[in-house]
Each structure stands twice: as C-alpha cells, then as structure tokens.
C-alpha cells in the first residue's frame, strides 16, 4: 500500500491544517495570551511544512512513481485474508469482549486465525482452547488482570485465585 510521496505529503499537510484550525478555537487560560492551542498549532505547522516539502519532492519525481503502488499481496486471496484478520480480530474483541467475556472472545479469535492460517478446524479448536485456557489462567486467575468475564461473570469467583 505505497502512496506516491506527493499524495502522502498532501495527506499530512491536510492533517496539519486541520489541527491548526481546530486549535484556533480552543480557549485561553488566565494571565496568558496563549494556551492549550499553542502546542497543537506548532505541531500542525510542523506537519504542514514537512508535508509540503514531501509533496514538492514527490511532484518533482511524479512520473517515476505511480499514485498508488499495487502491492503484491493484493493478488492472493489467502494473503489478503491473513492481513485483514489481524485488525478485524482486535475490533471483534472491542465489540464483543464485554458481553461474551475474554475466554470466549479470545477463543473465537484464536480459532479463526488458526483456520485462516491453514490449520485443520478440529486441530485449531483444540490448540485454541488450550491456549486461551492457559492465558486466562495466568492473567485473570493468577495475575488478577480485570479481564471481562462476560457470560461467565456469575461464576467467575471460582476462577479468580
């Protein structure tokens, strides 16, 4: 997923511009003529300047690079799936963990990722179950990380040692 330098620079420039505009609306504290907006404004300005240089450098070499370089993995469904499953797993955890609990959410993530990676489903289920039980025991039961229990909440007292 490689963008042309000019496009990338422009994206940063736009981000910097937005930060500067947003910061202008922040109130100022007592006694001073500048406040919480000062630092973001400077950072936004930095992004605009560096993004600008990047854009110019990219425009000078505009012909040598395409706007978006087509990465090799786009041709393989397997690799796309491999890639997409990682952020998808985290987002699934974000959405489901409070309701399902860490154990079942984690189990789902592990089994799906193992199957996507090419492990046979039954084997994936067994390996995933062992992994999640061990991780839950270490972090929730022994180390007392307040991982969500979800559906197991009413009986979770027995699993916290």
């Amino acid at each position: 997923m490689k963008l042309n330098d000019a496009v990338l620079g422009a994206v940063f420039c736009a981000l910097g511009l937005w930060i500067v505009l947003y910061s202008a609306g922040l109130p100022k504290p007592r006694h001073l003529s500048y406040g919480p907006g000062l630092f973001p404004t400077l950072m936004g300005a930095g992004l605009i300047v560096c993004g600008g240089i990047q854009t110019i450098a990219g425009l000078l070499r505009w012909r040598s690079a395409p706007i978006v370089e087509r990465p090799a993995w786009l041709g393989h469904r397997r690799l796309i799936l491999n890639l997409a499953v990682i952020p998808a797993a985290c987002l699934f955890y974000y959405v489901a963990a409070d309701r399902l609990g860490f154990l079942f959410t984690g189990l789902t993530i592990l089994v799906v990722m193992l199957v996507v990676g090419g492990v046979a489903p039954l084997r994936a289920a067994i390996v995933g179950l062992v992994m999640i039980v061990v991780v839950t025991m270490i972090f929730a039961s022994i180390l007392h990380v307040p991982l969500p229990w979800g559906v197991l909440a009413p009986i979770s007292g027995r699993f916290i040692w």
């Binding site: 990682i86 797993a89 985290c90 955890y93 984690g106 993530i109 592990l110 990722m113 193992l114 990676g117 995933g128 992994m131 999640i132 991780v135 972090f139 990380v145 991982l147």
Partner: peptide, 10 residues
C-alpha cells in the same frame, strides 16, 4: 501469530 495478537490485546 494468533498467540502474539492475544498477548497484544491483554
């Protein structure tokens, strides 16, 4: 990979 991801979440 899945195990590292699980550790990242924890």
């Amino acid at each position: 990979t899945p195990l590292i991801l699980l550790f990242c979440i924890v």
